[in-house]
């Protein structure tokens, strides 16, 4: 193959001509070898072993592109896998769309593509279709990625808000805030030295095992943007039930706690990329906890609370470590570092 003369992405790489072809054949195809993709059809044809499918999509715009514990590529694969996983599906195939800003170094693109390939391989998920576009310098933040994912519904599993009932227990699969605090700490305008590491990981192997081995899982969600607070508030809002949690039982990495305190952030509002919340029937809570704790991605799993009847308005209420109580509100979008 002819050597690429360019070391950066040009607008022409998205123009549909020679350079586009070179970008796809030289950089993308070799990394994602599979029968569905090889002949570059307009649409992938898949043979699946179930006709109940889960289908999801998500776009990734993280800054910086590379952070301790992951990068935008790994995130784009794991994030979409996780959306399928918490819906009770086994992830099968992903699409991959790249929106690349003119001027992005090929070396950076290659690192991201390698990471995507590795994450897809590790999780036995194929990239079966895709697209690349380029935009003018300044119109994007180096690269934006969209992935859509298809999964087959795990047999006998139906999850949903409507299954949740008073008395159900809430399990959290591990520490919170790791991803969000890592990314914030490595942002150019904030940057401080820490030992933080993103929890970016694909959860399908853990959720799959949980759903295979127990029958009491009623609902799962990965607390990404908005953190644990957003997920619990969504549960309360959709079910009109009250969510009670205990601060002392929520696992938080001490470095994450310290960094969040320093910036004045509430760790409950900080994003996670490798955790899930599961609402389970009370009789199988211990089993679920054990399964999580015996899996590498759920070692610090904890029972953090329960669902109760609502007396006034449905809300999320937290018993604090000192024996007080407070309401956990839906976060309002953007955490700002405080002044002193």
């Amino acid at each position: 193959m002819k050597q690429n003369k360019h070391d950066r992405i040009l607008l022409a790489h998205g123009g549909g001509g020679k350079l586009s072809d070179e970008l796809i054949r030289k950089y993308i195809l070799p990394r994602f070898k599979n029968p569905a993709l090889e002949k570059l059809p307009d649409a992938a044809t898949l043979n699946l072993d179930s006709n109940t499918l889960a289908f999801t999509t998500d776009s990734y715009v993280v800054k910086p592109l590379f952070f301790n514990g992951g990068d935008i590529g790994k995130l784009a694969v794991c994030g979409t896998i996780n959306d399928l996983a918490v819906a009770g599906a086994k992830p099968v195939a992903l699409s991959l769309s790249l929106i690349i800003e003119e001027g992005l170094e090929f070396s950076v693109l290659e690192r991201i593509l390698d990471s995507i390939a590795r994450a897809a391989d590790d999780n036995d998920v194929a990239i079966v279709t895709g697209d690349t576009k380029t935009v003018e310098a300044g119109a994007a933040e180096k690269i934006f990625i969209n992935t859509a994912g298809i999964g087959t519904r795990i047999e006998g599993v139906t999850l949903g808000f409507d299954k949740i009932a008073p008395g159900d227990k809430i399990i959290l699969s591990g520490t919170i805030g790791d991803h969000g605090m890592t990314v914030i700490s490595q942002r150019k305008d904030i940057r401080f030295q820490t030992q933080l590491k993103s929890d970016c990981a694909a959860l399908a192997s853990l959720t799959g095992e949980l759903l295979d081995k127990t029958a009491g899982v009623k609902f799962m969600r990965d607390p990404t943007r908005g953190g644990l607070a957003a997920t619990l508030n969504e549960i309360s809002k959709q079910t009109r039930l009250t969510v009670q949690i205990s601060e002392a039982d929520i696992p938080v990495n001490p470095t994450v706690r310290a960094a969040a305190d320093m910036l004045g952030f509430d760790v409950l509002n900080i994003a996670n990329e490798g955790k899930f919340v599961a609402v389970v029937s009370p009789d199988c809570a211990d089993d679920c906890l054990n399964i999580c704790r015996n899996h590498p991605l759920g070692k610090q799993a904890a029972l953090i609370g329960q669902i109760t009847e609502t007396t006034d308005l449905p809300l999320v209420e937290m018993a604090t470590k000192i024996g007080g109580k407070r309401i956990v509100q839906m976060p309002y979008g953007r955490e700002l570092p405080r002044i002193c």
Binding site: G264, T320, K321, I322, G323, G324, R326, I339, C340
Partner: peptide, 16 residues
């Protein structure tokens, strides 16, 4: 002190 204000609320101190 704003940090006291937040700590008081975040820890539910008023309720104790």
């Amino acid at each position: 002190c704003g940090t006291h204000t937040v700590a008081i609320f975040r820890n539910g101190i008023r309720t104790t």
